Structures are given as C-alpha cells and as structure tokens.
Simulated scan of single mutants.
Amino acid sequence: MIGPRWMTRYPDAKGKKHDRVPIYIKMMNIACGIEYDGTDFHGFQRQPESHGQTVQGVLEAAIASISQENPVVNGAGRTDAGVHARGQVIHFRTAFHLSPETWQRALNAVLPNTIAVRWARIVPESFHARFSAASRSYRYSIWNDFAPTALLARYSYYRPQALDVDLMNEACHLLLGRKDFGAFGRSPDETNPGKKGQHSCIRNMLQARCIREDARAKALIYCDFTADAFLTGMVRRTVGTLLLVGQKQLSLAEFAAIVQNADKTHPGSAVPPHGLCLVRVDYPEEFGVSNNDEDI
C-alpha cells in the first residue's frame, strides 16, 4: 500500500496548497505481540471516551504520538472488560519507517506499564491480525483453596468449594470438534448493525481441558481452550458450567445435552472476567508470525 505525503514544489511557495505536490511512501504493515493487564480497561475494542480507556485506544494514541499519523490498530481477539492477555496480536499500517526493534522500544517507552509490546515485526501486506488467525487460545485460572490468594487475586477466580477436576476435564472432551456453541455465548455480529439476519454460533474447538497445577499445593486449576474463533462470553460461561460439573451439581449426561442442544437456558452462569487470559494466537506459516511457542 502507498500513502501520500506532501512536499513544497518551490522553496519560496510559503506552503500554499496549490503549490504542493504529493509524494508517495510505501506503507509498512507492522505486527506486534501484546501483553496487558485488563483490570482497568473497558475491553480491547475502541469505544467512546465516555466509556473509559480501551487497549486499542491506548495503543492507537501511542502509535500516533510517535508517527504523527492516525493509525488503526486491529487485534486478533476483542477481549472483554477486565480480561487479560499475554499473547494478543495486533497489526497497524504506517508510512513512518522505523525498524521493528525501534517500534518496540518506542512504544514501550510511551505505553502505560499495564501494556507491553513483547515483539514487533514487518509482515506481508495481506496479513490481518484477526482475519488471518488460524486459532486462538484462552486460559481461565481458578484459585481452588480454603484460603484466598492476594498475589494472584487479579488474575484468578477464587472458588473454595471442592472441585472434581478429573470430572471437569472429562466434560471438556464433549466440547471438542465443530459444533454450535450457542449454549455458551453469542455471535459478535449480533451487535453489529451492518450485519443483519442470522448469525452462526458454530465454532471448531481444537483443544479443551481442565488441569490442576502441581505447584502451589495444587490450588491452581487451569481451564484451557483453543478454537478457530470464540463467541462473545463463550469461555466464561463454559467455565461456569464446568464448575457445576466439578461440584457434582450437573452430570456429564446433562452437560452433554446442553452442548448438543445449544441450550441457552441451562443453569451455568458466566464466571468473572479477571480469571481469563488470551494466551496465544496461531497463524499459517506463510505470514512468518510465531506469537508464542510455549504450550498453554
């Protein structure tokens, strides 16, 4: 993509518009790996200023302060208010030619300490952080102990009740594959006035598991999910329903029926956002973007 810039035709033209001619500068497509503490943000997606700060809004302001442009940041996952990320991917186009390393240093110098740029690189023009993604991975953390934790309170949901994690993990197997997940969320397009009509809730769940961490006296439970895409609120209500299975208030057969029938009226409720984290986004090899090589 080529972007216009203006130069004065004659040195003594005093900047009159009719005496200026456009020059064209090749636009760079920059991808970045972003980590953020979502506690004080009203989600990722830009909103009116009266709604409060968003991650996208802060990133765009930071880029603008460096390049003096009006950038548009696109993210792989539009996380809700209070949700964190350690593996979010964004991209933006700019005519301000800095090396990826310089972009990373410059952005980290102006961003608040609740947002960090973990890496930056030039990507093909066709790369789009959201639409090029092959899968996204989320982790929901539960602190399952008699006593709460102070240090992890911002990033985990405290549940002191006894939980059968093996039973929860067995229920996760029922989520795998391509199916209608309408029982646990709604299509993001439902609130988009430009996309009227029926909206699909079909997604392909590639991984789903619940595991108890060996360290920390086994108090931490991780609920991990990888899918091609997620519905709005899908992970949080899925975890809320899995907790009923873990407390043996919902049988595996009942959980299976909820999934099969895409029943929105089931008793599982959404857990709070602060336990949720976007941990990884994967892309086809052609884009040269390897966001996070760690297993979730």
Rank of each mutant, 00 (worst) to 15 (best):
E190G: 03
P148Y: 00
A171E: 01
R159W: 07
L152V: 04
R154L: 10
P160N: 05
C172N: 13
E170L: 14
R159Q: 12
G185Q: 01
A171R: 07
R136I: 13
D180Y: 03
Y140M: 11
L167W: 09
R186G: 03
R136M: 14
N169K: 12
R136S: 12
N144Q: 15
L163N: 00
A150N: 08
G182H: 00
R178G: 05
N144W: 08
A183Q: 00
L176P: 04
L174F: 11
R154S: 11
L151V: 12
R186N: 01
W143F: 09
Y158M: 03
Q161A: 15
C172V: 09
T149N: 06
A150D: 05
P188Y: 05
M168T: 01
N144H: 13
R154A: 12
L176A: 04
I142V: 15
S187V: 06
D189P: 01
D189S: 05
L152Y: 07
R154I: 03
W143M: 07
G177W: 11
Y138C: 10
N144L: 13
L176C: 08
Y157G: 03
L152D: 01
S135W: 07
M168W: 00
R159D: 01
Y157H: 13
Y138G: 08
G194D: 02
A147D: 08
I142M: 08
L167G: 10
W143H: 09
I142D: 00
D166P: 12
G182W: 04
R186H: 10
P148F: 01
E170V: 09
Y138I: 11
P160C: 04
K179Y: 07
I142S: 06
G185Y: 02
E190V: 09
D145G: 12
D180T: 00
D189I: 03
Y140E: 06
P160F: 02
V165Q: 10
T149P: 02
G194I: 04
L151Q: 04
F181S: 03
K195Q: 11
P193G: 06
E190P: 03
D145Y: 14
K179R: 15
Q161T: 08
A150Q: 07
S137C: 14
Y157L: 10
L176R: 09
F181A: 08
